[in-house]
Design a protein around this nucleic acid. Sequence first.
DNA 1: CTTACGATTGTCT
DNA 2: GACAATCGTAAGC
Length: 201
Amino acid sequence: MLKLPYSFYQNSNVNELAVQLLGKQLFTFIDGQLTGGTIVETEAYKGVEDKASHAYGGRFTPRTQTMYQSGGVSYVYLCYGIHHLFNVVTAPQGTPHAVLIRGLEPLEGLSIMLERRNMSMLKPNLTAGPGALAKALGIDRTLNAKDLLGDEIWIAENGIYYTEDQLVASPRVGVNYAGDHALLPWRYYVKGNKYVSRPNS
DNA sequence: CTTACGATTGTCT
DNA sequence: GACAATCGTAAGC
């Protein structure tokens, strides 16, 4: 297992990087428990020029300052007062680009993840959706701004590469407030994978 | 200090 | 398909 190097995260083309993260493996080691899986769904958030980004227009606050760090750290925040969402900070320091991880195919620590989600048997919604996968991996705000080459949370390469015809680009989810930017096809996922989140239906 | 709201999910009908 | 849960964050006074 090989952790992705810092150079991987320095790419300032956040859309390209969101695609490259598909097929990589995200792991956490929390409370002595190893859990993780393969990333199958991402969304790109393009810093100051993206109306859907927390850093739109250069907004710099105690929360968003993490996004301005040099690529290769985590950005975790609370949504709706309930759900923790996990992002990968990318691009060189000062450029607040980030990639939201929205779907994960479980690999390690299945029983731990089931327990954290209060589920008794494996169903796709164990880790389909950003809030769901964060809970399954035990991610909360104490993991904000962590080094992604550390020993609490990291992303590894495992030789999985998807070809373009296996991938789909579509509009992002839950960002209607972003006006015209809500239509940008910056959500990427693996075609046909069961662990890609479905719009509420 | 006060207030409005969200990069969502689970439960109920 | 509809809606409640629930609180940190950011902006306004």
